[in-house]
Structure formats: structure tokens, C-alpha cells
């Protein structure tokens, strides 16, 4: 049973701002479908006693003390910007709403 079709890939690509050709969309739909099916197979094997795992290493509570460290110099920061003005990044006109 196919769960990932070309339309779904096109929708995700649009959300992720990835420009795909129709050929790429079709190929990825096939590849991703295989991956999703594989994961589904694993899910069948995993019983309720296996907790969902987001990290391979069983590690928790990696916390930092609330102490101020080194910040980057402004020149270095803005050296990364295609355009800058008044110490800020200048970006093209923003369409749509803030989140």
C-alpha cells in the first residue's frame, strides 16, 4: 500500500521551500514510500513495552548553568549577511504574517 504519493511530496517540498522538478518529485515519492513502509514494519514489531525513542543514547537532563558567555562581534556577524544596514540584517520585503 503506497502512503507517499507525488502530491504529498510536492506539498512537503513546498512547505520546506525545496524546488523539485516533476521527475524528482516522482522519484522521491517512490524512495520515501519504501522508507515509510520500512518504518511501518518496524512499528508492527515494537510492542507497547517499547517506548518511542527520539535519541539513541539513553541520556537526559543535559543542562547548562545560566552564565553569560562570549558573544560574536558585530562585524563578524554582519560579514555573513548579503546585505546589512544599521547593524542589522537587511532582508527582502516580507510577505505574509508573522507567526
Amino acid at each position: 500500500m503506497s502512503t507517499i504519493n507525488a502530491d504529498e511530496v510536492a506539498r512537503l517540498a513546498a512547505l520546506a521551500r525545496i524546488d523539485l522538478t516533476p521527475e524528482e518529485t516522482d522519484r522521491l515519492a517512490g524512495d520515501l514510500d519504501v522508507i515509510v513502509q520500512s518504518v511501518a514494519t518496524v512499528s508492527e514489531v515494537a510492542g507497547d513495552d517499547v517506548p518511542a525513542t527520539s535519541h539513541p543514547i539513553p541520556l537526559t537532563n543535559v543542562l547548562r548553568d545560566d552564565v553569560v558567555g562570549q558573544t560574536l562581534p558585530l562585524e563578524d556577524i554582519l560579514a555573513q549577511a548579503p546585505q546589512a544596514e544599521d547593524g542589522q540584517f537587511a532582508v527582502p520585503q516580507i510577505l505574509g504574517e508573522e507567526q
Binding site: Q88, V91, P92
Partner: peptide
Amino acid sequence: IHGAEYSLVDY
């Protein structure tokens, strides 16, 4: 937002 020519960003 609408009608702005560009935006400045402070992080």
C-alpha cells in the same frame, strides 16, 4: 508589513 520595501532584523 504590507508596503514595506525591506526589513531589518535584530537577533
